[in-house]
Design a protein around this nucleic acid. Structure first.
Length: 611
RNA sequence: GCCGAUGUGGCUCAGUGGUAGAGCACUCGAUUCGUAAUCGAGCGGUCGGGGGUUCAAAUCCCCCCAUCGGCUCCA
């Protein structure tokens, strides 16, 4: 987030040259004046663009969270230089103090005026409008079809409180089959101070970008030779992964989950039964083999495999709920332009589980899953930063499988659950999986982009397609309901988000290196090695700086590597069998006896606390 | 996939037609040092890949690959 939700570590706060933030940066929907300002800016930009580029056709230009954009149809791409010229032109317009006047017109008048200007996109917009139809005039020479609201005159805009940020392609009406327009993004504020603070926070956000920090901290790499969207995990990054995996595995064992392991490929036939082949063939890596009958594909999901384990034997109602869990690596052929860092990849590991339940167990089991997810998010300190989304189908789309009845039952089950829990949530129509609705946990990354992490899905359809059964207490064959769930979503995306959330300062239990021992001179090397060995015997991730540099340099390097605990060792410490502890969180703590350090570390790790 | 930008040693970057440079990292040497950078030397790049223009290409042109900002998509 770009707003005040980003927690600063104490070390960061100390290092910051500017005083603690006092400038509040409202989103557009929090401020009526800003809404007018940002909306008007987009029209001033449109006017400026049409003055400088007479061939440019106008389309739409709304306000967005921290600014505005406007989409143009223009034969040549806008360049950085063009942006500068447009900004200059906008300042001229603002300084003229043009009056902004609203005019209400009939549909016919609007149509005629638009036709005079030969603005086909405007004409199409007009078709979809309901009365009253309003035009907004900026001075005498320029107007736009618009619902408003706007400021009274361009003098109400501060020419020093806006900036043009970027040009991007955008499809007309968001439809990739239609014309691609050029979108210019801008940001606008009431004061230059707000603008400066906004820009400062954007720079700050870039510094915590997981792609940058992941490289600096040596957590993962990409290789052109391996391929795009296929992260390689280094030893340090792997510690993060396995620590998170172990943590969740323990929680799941407590809750009656049973681990399973399934292969990375399966027959095309399997995915035909599940419906994936028909619905999501384009998103699978190309088939291996000559024909669909004999072909294999890399799995893009684990459910069909877990279903086969369920089906391998006749199940009794006494076995249900049956909870099959796997950290399953899946492969999806994401569009090339969509890939980015760890948040959107082509190969990733889901913390997947499939729960097979009787219809009567559904509500209770669903609540238990939500409870698990909430406790996981809390342990990761993400519990204040997610939003819960009810992801339902879009009734007007045909991309779903299954009966209306099954869908309604599933959607109602999810609704009942969030109501029972009193969980705040919002609805995402059209966000469902093709086989069922979901409850998704959405988080925001450093650059203000939203990502789905955890998910719970209620599924009546796959049990139907695979003809799953269990024997009920009356001896009849009944169909189970499935719950798909992944608290992390994917380890890759979760770790990307965590890197940004912590700005690389992992809590002690997750930190790849928990303590680094820093010998003041090489005299202490033997002692330091021996203490490190002692710590490692107790499962503490300890390492020694053997570089032979001076202490100041060792500390600097450890700080840059964001190692949570540093232990300085000179002659005094060797003498007293102690370590001089310095932590990233609290600074210098003085000399502490080795056994005490060991105990405190173990305690803090177990409790997910800092040292 | 689409629009646009970018790609120079491990990292961060300079170099815009005359044959590649800095800092950090790394190696070696000197220094033995107490809480955010000790000094010196050395190693290291066919400038993302391929093709073209030119006497001459990191630099200009074309194609491809990757990354970044968006759009579209997202089981």
């Amino acid at each position: 987030m770009l707003d005040l939700l980003i927690p600063m570590s104490p070390a960061e706060a100390n290092a910051a040259l500017v005083p603690p933030e006092k400038i509040y940066l409202p989103r557009t929907d929090e401020s009526e004046p800003l809404k007018r300002i940002r909306h008007t800016f987009s029209h001033v930009m449109a006017m400026a663009v049409q003055r400088l580029f007479p061939k440019a056709q106008v389309t739409i230009g709304p306000w967005i969270d921290y600014g505005f954009y406007y989409d143009f149809d223009h034969p040549e791409p806008f360049t950085e230089k063009d942006l500068k010229a447009i900004k200059k032109e906008m300042i001229k317009i603002i300084n003229k103090g043009l009056a902004i006047e609203r005019e209400e017109v009939s549909r016919e008048v609007a149509r005629q005026r638009i036709e005079q200007q030969a603005e086909p996109y405007k004409l199409e917009i007009l078709e979809g409008l309901e009365e009253p139809i309003t035009l907004y005039h900026l001075g005498q020479d320029w107007w736009d079809l618009c619902a408003g609201p706007h400021v009274a005159t361009t003098k109400d805009l501060n020419p020093k409180a806006f900036d043009l940020e970027s040009v991007a392609g955008a499809y007309w009406r968001g439809d990739e089959k239609r014309a691609q327009l050029q979108r210019i993004y801008g940001t606008a504020w009431e004061t230059p101070e707000q603008l400066a603070e906004y820009q400062r926070r954007r720079e700050e956000a870039k510094r915590r970008d997981h792609r940058k920090l992941g490289k600096e901290l040596g957590l993962f790499v990409f290789s052109d030779e391996v391929g795009p969207g296929l992260p390689l995990w280094t030893p340090r990054g792997t510690i993060l992964r396995s620590t998170l995996e172990d943590f969740l595995k323990q929680e799941q064992v407590k809750r009656g989950y049973q681990p399973v392991v399934t292969p990375h490929i399966g027959r095309v036939e399997l995915f035909k039964i599940s419906g994936h082949w028909q619905k999501y063939k384009e998103d699978l890596f190309p088939m291996m083999g000559e024909s669909e009958e004999e072909g294999f594909v890399l799995k893009a999901m684990n459910c069909p495999f877990h279903i086969q384990i369920y089906k391998s034997t006749l199940r009794s109602y006494r076995e249900l709920p049956l909870r099959l869990a796997e950290f399953g690596t899946v492969y999806r052929y994401e569009q090339s332009g969509e890939l980015g860092g760890l948040t959107r990849v082509r190969g990733f590991t889901q913390d997947d589980a499939h729960l097979f339940v009787t219809p009567g167990q559904l509500d209770d089991e669903f609540l238990k899953v939500v409870d698990l997810i909430q406790s996981i998010l809390k342990a990761l300190r993400l519990d204040t930063s997610f939003r819960a989304r009810l992801s339902f189908r879009d009734p007007s789309s045909d991309k779903y499988i299954g009966s209306d009845d099954a869908w309604n039952k599933a959607e109602n089950a999810i609704r009942r659950a969030v109501e029972t829990l009193g969980m705040s949530h919002f609805e995402g129509i059209g966000e469902a999986a093709f086989y069922g609705p979901k409850l998704d946990f959405i988080v925001t990354d450093a650059l203000d982009r939203q990502w789905q992490l955890g998910t719970v899905q209620v599924d009546y359809n796959l049990p139907e397609r695979f003809k799953l059964e269990y024997v009920a207490d009356d001896g009849s064959r009944q169909r189970p309901v499935m719950i798909h769930r992944a608290p992390f979503g994917s380890l890759e995306r979760l770790i990307g988000i965590l890197i940004e959330e912590y700005a690389g300062d992992f809590p002690l239990w997750l930190a790849p290196v928990q303590i680094r021992l820093l010998p003041v001179t090489e005299e202490q090397m033997g002692y330091v090695q021996q203490v490190a060995e002692q710590l490692r015997q107790q499962q503490i991730r300890a390492e020694v700086d053997t570089s032979g540099d001076r202490l100041g340099k060792l500390i600097r390097n450890a700080e840059k590597a964001k190692i949570p605990v540093m232990a300085v060792v000179g002659a005094k410490e060797v003498e007293s069998n102690s370590l001089s502890i310095r932590t990233r969180a609290s600074g210098e703590l003085g000399a502490i006896a080795v056994p005490e350090v060991l105990e405190k570390m173990q305690q803090a790790i177990a409790n997910h606390d800092d040292f």
